[in-house]
Design a protein around this nucleic acid. Structure first.
Lengths: 163, 163
DNA sequence: AAGAAAGAGTTGTATAAGCCAACTATCCGC
DNA sequence: GCGGATAGTTGGCTTATACAACTCTTTCTT
């Protein structure tokens, strides 16, 4: 399964028309998405891709509400509720009832959660670094900026389901 | 929250160190992957992301075996078998027993399959175009090239499960 | 201030997709 | 023609997700 994997044959060479670039971006992002979950599961059986990103978000924000997670990741609140329950059962996160609003539980990483997150991040980082090893620095920086810009789209535009 | 979302606080500005860029790429690709499947399902209830890519592959290759699909997408053959069954039930693909090897069923798109594939491709294309609407042409082309390069990695490197 | 509306979270139920293992049927090598 | 490999199917299980109905708390309206 190491070979090509494109819905259509066009390859955008630098200088291709923008229409082609849009097609390529669509195709490549889709190709990536299709695989990511499967390989992530195989890499880190202890932490699904979703759990990993939820923990990551918690670390980044230093705690947040389940509702925030749901909104941010376009997941149903019930889904988040169950994911969080699992993470709590595994003692990777803890809930603290917000003293100002008793409806709210603020979620925080536990020490164990922080630890596992760091481990998984490290091993993912290794894989990414390997993958990006041959890239010139300038390209890395630009690629990173493009991805951020792409992913930020939804947050600017109102409502409509992204991608 | 269009900006940072990083395990550590660094924001890659053009000129940032490559280590930071690698983190960002990892994070953003992951974020994308997490979302894609869910939103794809909501966009095209009639055709899951997997089904879509299977149909796409069939069109691209002008027919192939279930085993090829499984190998290509790193899916279990049972998963492919059931997906194909569903697609056949929906009359989007048909099976033709290979006259030279009666174990083999060569899968082909039906007219309906071709038609739906075209429709979904078109609507996905529209969404992508919208999303990328404000981008300067040059950036689109470069982004596309980066994605191709990123996804092509596996093809050069031997074996190991990518990403 | 009382009742209505909105918000946060949980639980019940259903579906989809995936894996593994066991199975059938065919083919290939000798 | 027998034994091993290959193609595909099926049964059983798990996980991730959505939607809907529900509880509890807060906020808004009059």
């Amino acid at each position: 399964m190491t070979t090509a994997e494109m819905p259509d044959e066009t390859t955008v060479t630098p200088g291709g028309r923008p229409a082609e670039a849009v097609e390529t971006i669509q195709r490549e992002m889709t190709a990536f998405a299709r695989r990511a979950r499967a390989s992530a599961g195989r890499m880190h059986p202890e932490l699904s891709l979703v759990s990993y990103t939820l923990l990551g978000h918690l670390e980044e924000r230093d705690g947040c509400r389940a509702t925030d997670l749901a909104a941010h990741y376009a997941l149903d609140k019930s889904t988040v509720s169950r994911q969080v329950s699992a993470l709590e059962r595994a003692e990777l996160v803890e809930r603290r009832v917000d003293p100002d609003d008793h409806r709210v539980q603020v979620l925080h990483l536990t020490e164990a959660g922080r630890h596992i997150l760091a481990q998984v991040t490290e091993s993912r980082r290794t894989a990414f670094r390997e993958r990006l090893a041959g890239w010139p620095e300038e390209d890395l920086v630009r690629f990173a900026a493009y991805l951020e810009r792409y992913n930020a789209w939804q947050e600017a535009a109102p409502g409509e389901d992204q991608h």
